[in-house]
Write a protein that binds this DNA or RNA. Structure first.
Lengths: 138, 138
DNA sequence: CTTGAACCTCTAGTCACTAGAGAGACTACA
DNA sequence: TGTAGTCTCTCTAGTGACTAGAGGTTCAAG
């Protein structure tokens, strides 16, 4: 049995965030001391590690809820879990694609100006003002 | 002189978003009709195109504010503009790097399970529960 | 002059937290 | 047992960049 501060230290999840997860229904409300303070067991620790790991991988609170629901019913098909993971994967891939396009455009814009002129002639500002100066769409 | 709806159509920025930009100080408050409706000129159109383009490239409202400030003083050095663009570029690169790590991890996790088993044996769930199953840190 | 679309302001909601106030509880040491 | 100091409690409000909706007013076409 350990306090919320201890749980926070072990999982590296901040104390208010732990309380937030509880409020959102991700983390079961733990036991309380006579003085109303939360006391966790290893169960809580494992659950929170799971949540943190999933958050680190970019899963939404909603997605994590579904995954936990599944965890609580070990006999169910895990199809949903695979779907959620694959959905997340394609979201990540889409983001990468988009960011790479941005990277190219920004590289081009930033290289166009050495920062030594005045704003009037600045290629950065001109590029932003006139989309036609862009190599391709974004 | 055209209405906010017309401006919205031409720039593809939604009406409430235009009002929001005005509130945030990005867009100068335009003239109004006798009945208090906004009426824009080409100036407003150009300004909004600039903002939209910058937002599309991921610049924050704050960064855009600085860029506009600079635009309004064409005699100033454009060093700040180049810095902002370069800052944005390195942020984008950092995001790409992180997302690529996530992509690898998610790929590994998603491939570990075909979704045909039950939750108890699901590799997706197991991987999330146990960070040690991860190839590398993230 | 009427109709109906577009416009106005204001408030509240989104996501996943983060910050702070003010009060109460716990623990270590004397 | 007293007390100092840290931890914890709940509650409210703020973040960024919008989005949604209510309830009311104005505009332009016919």
């Amino acid at each position: 049995m350990f306090s919320i501060g201890e749980l926070s230290k072990r999982t590296k999840v901040k104390v208010p965030t732990i309380r937030y997860y509880e409020e959102m229904g991700l983390l079961a409300p733990p036991e309380r001391t006579a003085g109303n303070q939360r006391r966790y067991t290893n169960d809580g620790l494992e659950r929170l590690s799971f949540i943190r790991h999933a958050r680190d991988l970019g899963f939404s609170i909603d997605a994590i809820s579904s995954l936990i629901e599944l965890q609580n019913h070990p006999d169910r098909s895990c199809e949903a879990a695979t779907e959620i993971a694959e959905g997340q994967l394609s979201e990540v891939r889409a983001k990468i694609k988009r960011l790479k396009a941005l990277e190219n455009e920004l590289k081009r814009i930033a290289q166009g100006c050495d920062g030594r002129g005045v704003a009037e002639d600045c290629y950065v500002l001109a590029s932003l003002a006139d989309h036609d100066l862009c190599g391709r769409d974004h």
